[in-house]
């Protein structure tokens, strides 16, 4: 029993990071119906930037806001370079363009920071705490707190502020929103900025556990994508639930079926979800009246 609980909890905490990256997909999809396929590379580059900030002597807590800012700037850069033109032309060019930007960031990171995985220092203790017969480290708990706090803040922003209302309006119906005088362009920029910030947060949170390396993004992004698709591309609450579930499922599968089968249940889940509920478990089938 302890083993199930231990596996479930450690897996679920990692699953929250998938959820955060998936949330980054949702943010941009809501406003612009486009997704940054290089989101994983944003996580990685932001993590490296944060590491460099620590290297030049910035204290950890001072680094966090700068890191988030850097992530937001990267998000805006992706929007400007890879997405805006394609959306203006109503083409699907952003798919290829965001992949290309991702590849570019990957190569740049390899050249600037090297190909090695590097440890990411954190002031949060890594000694495990014993809670209800299982071991969790404060670092893992910080992941949960960080993910939920940032997602909560963005959701509050969307519901309570004027800018947030514009965000929701563009998500609901871009054309009507523009007729009401809301700038869809600015809203999309905002969503990409948020999305970049979310990626940076994921990098800051996950790096002390996984180390920082150029390939760290690729491992995360595929799982985050599964989470986003299974949960549906609309529900922030959905990604958290599916993220927790998928993370726990992976851990349990690798324990009970064998360490080579880690990814299998997640993929089966993905196929099932697509077959049964193509809009995602928490998505709504949208009927657009013309």
């Amino acid at each position: 029993m302890d083993v199930i609980l231990q596996m479930g909890v450690s897996g679920a905490l990692m699953g929250l990071v998938y959820a955060l990256v998936a949330y980054g997909f949702q943010l941009t999809f809501a406003t612009s119906k486009s997704i940054n396929f290089g989101q994983g590379e944003l996580v990685m580059v932001s993590a490296f930037i944060c590491l460099s900030l620590l290297d030049i002597g910035l204290p950890y807590w001072a680094m966090v806001p700068f890191g988030l800012l850097a992530g937001a700037m990267l998000g805006l850069a992706v929007e400007r370079v890879a997405v805006r033109l394609a959306l203006e032309q109503k083409s699907e060019g952003w798919i290829l363009m965001t992949i290309i930007v991702g590849l570019f960031l990957f190569s740049a990171a390899e050249n600037i920071w090297g190909r090695d995985d590097r440890p990411f220092p954190t002031p949060i203790p890594t000694e495990p705490l014993h809670v209800l017969g299982i071991d969790v480290t404060p670092v893992e708990l910080s992941v949960a707190i960080g993910v939920l706090a940032l997602m909560g803040l963005i959701e509050v922003f969307k519901r309570k502020t004027l800018w947030g209302k514009a965000f929701e309006a563009v998500s609901a119906d871009r054309d009507s929103a523009e007729l009401m005088g809301i700038s869809a362009k600015a809203t999309i920029m905002l969503s990409y900025g948020f999305s970049g910030m979310v990626a940076a947060m994921a990098g800051i949170l996950v790096s002390p556990i996984t180390t920082v390396g150029p390939t760290m993004g690729a491992a995360l992004v595929l799982k985050a994508f599964s989470v986003a698709v299974v949960a549906g591309l609309e529900s922030g609450f959905g990604v958290v639930v599916v993220g927790l579930f998928l993370g726990a499922l992976e851990s349990l599968a690798s324990f009970y079926i064998g360490s080579g089968w880690r990814e299998a249940p997640g993929l089966v889940l993905l196929i099932l979800a697509l077959a049964v509920r193509p809009n995602g478990l928490f998505g709504r089938a949208r009927i657009r009246k013309v």
């Binding site: 596996m7 450690s10 851990s251 880690r262």
Partner: peptide, 20 residues
Amino acid sequence: TEKFKIGDKDMTAQLLKAKT
């Protein structure tokens, strides 16, 4: 006998197998 892939960072399952 436990395996993992290049890039895997979560070894909890493998370690618990060893422990149990």
